[in-house]
């Protein structure tokens, strides 16, 4: 028993509102997703948020709990029968690979028979407006609903390949900048990406991709679609060229120097979901890459 994608939705800031709150944006994507799927919020058994750059760097409660409240998936537990309709939510922080980590956890809860529907939500925005260096991430959010598959369709294989020797290539953290004098100090978010990071991401992805094909027993020409991370800048273009899979590789349109980070693979999925290519494809590979360097892959069958 696997997990099938029931619906996917994305959310961008409304025109004129660029400095948005990742929580509201994620909630908007989640509400749209529930509405499109015609599902009651109470039936979502597990809600996982995989966004990294969160509004005001909220530490607690989890962003997932705040989104859960906004989508009204909060039924008081009064008796045993209500328990089956309760929702559990938490956040996953795993860089660009958070998407597939979240999917794998929801998949395992569905396989366990514990839940009927699981929701993955992700969204990034600048934590404090104007207090960051090298922050080139689109404020964007996306949501996806997974449901139980009664046959062998849906997600079937997950693998993560690790390259710990490259852990210093991409680092993002806050530091306290105190200008002394009469001005107040500030916590500044700083993103440091080495020049070699992009090449290493592509090399690690190619190596992992072919290892994954060996493990899954699928040939390159049997793959109908590849849905991948859209960051770092230039990653999808270079990977597409290296794999030689032009038509099957989903790439979002370039938007200057800004990137879709944790929501990237979901935006790519939304593109093929809307034009029906996703449903008409038999073998689909999801590939995500994150700092570490970690490469996660999953096979999805229709």
């Amino acid at each position: 028993m696997g997990a099938l994608i029931k619906m996917v939705s994305v959310a961008r800031p409304r025109i004129g509102f660029h400095h948005v709150n990742s929580i509201s944006l994620s909630a908007r994507a989640a509400i749209q997703c529930l509405s499109d799927a015609q599902i009651d919020p109470f039936t979502i058994g597990l809600l996982v948020n995989t966004g990294i750059y969160r509004h005001k760097n909220t530490g607690e409660p989890s962003i997932a709990a705040l989104i859960q409240k906004k989508i009204s998936a909060c039924k008081p537990v009064n008796n045993d029968s209500d328990k089956s309709e309760s929702t559990f939510s938490f956040d996953i922080n795993n860089g660009g690979c958070g998407f597939l980590t979240g999917i794998e956890i929801i998949h395992s809860a569905i396989s366990d028979g514990e839940i009927t529907y699981g929701m993955l939500v992700t969204g990034d925005s600048e934590p404090f407006h104007g207090l960051s260096e090298n922050f080139n991430i689109h404020p964007a959010a996306a949501a996806l609903i997974l449901e139980k598959s009664e046959n062998s369709t849906g997600f079937s294989l997950f693998r993560t390949y690790i390259f710990p020797e490259y852990s210093e290539e991409f680092v993002s953290c806050t530091f306290f900048h105190d200008p002394k004098w009469f001005r107040k100090g500030r916590n500044i978010l700083n993103i440091k990406q080495k020049e070699s990071y992009l090449d290493l991401c592509v090399n690690c992805s190619v190596e992992s991709f072919f290892n994954f094909l060996d493990e899954s027993g699928i040939d390159l020409d049997e793959i109908d679609l590849i849905i991948s991370s859209q960051s770092p800048i230039g990653f999808t273009g270079m990977l597409k060229k290296r794999l030689g899979l032009n038509g099957n590789f989903i790439e979002l349109e370039k938007t200057g120097e800004m990137i879709y980070h944790t929501a990237g693979p979901l935006f790519a999925l939304k593109k093929v979901w809307d034009d029906n290519r996703f449903r008409s494809s038999e073998n689909i590979i999801f590939l995500t890459i994150g700092s570490g360097i970690n490469v996660s892959l999953a096979l999805y069958k229709n």
Binding site: K56, N57, T58, P61, Q68, C74, T87, S89, K184, N187
Partner: peptide, 22 residues
């Protein structure tokens, strides 16, 4: 067992990074 988030109470305890202090 029973892992549940009762999000109607999510605003009763909140923690976040300071803007102007470490």
């Amino acid at each position: 067992s029973g892992f549940t988030t009762l999000s109607q109470y999510s605003d009763l305890c909140t923690g976040r990074q300071n803007r102007n202090a470490p």
